[in-house]
Amino acid sequence: MSNLAQETCEACKSDAPTLSDSEINELKPDVPEWEVKEVDGEKRLSRQFKFKNFAQALAFTQTVGDMAEDVDHHPAILTEYGKVTVDWWTHKIGGLHKNDFVMAAKTDQAYL
């Protein structure tokens, strides 16, 4: 398990830089199941989680939502029958910050 899951989100100012490609590549091995994708010109971390049914998917969605609310850092979450897709990125800076990798690792931990 990644040490990132033990870290906490730090307050991010709107003028904070997005992570460079080399910084992303350095953090990516800590969340190997996550894909870096670009949506509307902004990089995001994205992963799909599988479940046996809608109730389990919904419970996981609530867990991720509560975790996000606790640190005031909110992902896009798509809940469907048997799967949940989570995208983390920092809206304030329009791309990826270390906080997104921390929250991806925490999301992985919640899935176990």
Rank of each mutant, 00 (worst) to 15 (best):
H74W: 09
D21N: 07
P32L: 12
Q6M: 09
A59D: 03
T8D: 06
Q109Y: 08
T79V: 01
K13Y: 06
K37Q: 14
W89R: 05
P75V: 08
V39W: 13
T18G: 01
A76P: 07
A104T: 07
K50W: 00
D108A: 01
V84M: 04
K28Y: 10
S46N: 04
F49K: 00
K13I: 12
C12M: 09
K52M: 09
N3S: 09
E7G: 13
V86A: 01
K28V: 04
W34C: 01
L4W: 03
M1V: 10
W89A: 06
T8S: 13
D21S: 07
V84P: 04
D21H: 08
V86L: 02
R44G: 05
N25S: 11
G94V: 03
E38M: 15
A76M: 13
G95L: 04
P29I: 12
E69N: 06
L112S: 15
V64K: 09
H74L: 13
N25L: 06
D70R: 14
A76S: 15
E38A: 13
K50D: 04
A110D: 09
C9F: 10
W88P: 03
E38K: 15
G82M: 09
V86D: 08
V31P: 03
D15R: 14
A76Q: 13
V84F: 00
M67F: 05
H74Y: 11
N25P: 10
H91K: 06
P32K: 11
L45G: 01
G94Y: 01
F54I: 00
A104K: 04
A11G: 11
H91N: 05
A5C: 12
E33A: 15
K83C: 01
D30A: 14
V86Q: 00
T63A: 03
E26H: 13
F49M: 08
T85S: 06
A110T: 08
D30C: 12
W34A: 06
K28D: 11
R47L: 09
L45P: 07
Y81P: 11
A76H: 15
Q48V: 12
K13N: 12
F60A: 05
P32E: 02
H74S: 07
E69A: 12
S46C: 08
V31G: 05
C12Q: 14
Y111F: 14
F101I: 08
A105F: 04
A11M: 14
T79E: 08
N53S: 08
M103V: 04
D72N: 15
E80K: 06
T61I: 00
E69S: 09
K92D: 11
Q62Y: 09
G65V: 02
F101G: 04
E69F: 07
S14Q: 11
K37T: 15
D72Y: 14
D40K: 12
D40V: 11
F51A: 01
D15Y: 13
D40N: 12
V64I: 10
K106D: 07
H91G: 07
P75Y: 04
G82F: 06
H91D: 07
D72G: 12
T18Y: 03
C9E: 06
A55C: 08
E23R: 13
S20M: 10
A68Q: 00
E80N: 04
L27H: 10
L58T: 14
V39F: 12
W88V: 05
F54Y: 10
N25F: 00
E42Y: 08
T18W: 00
P29R: 00
H91R: 01
V64E: 02
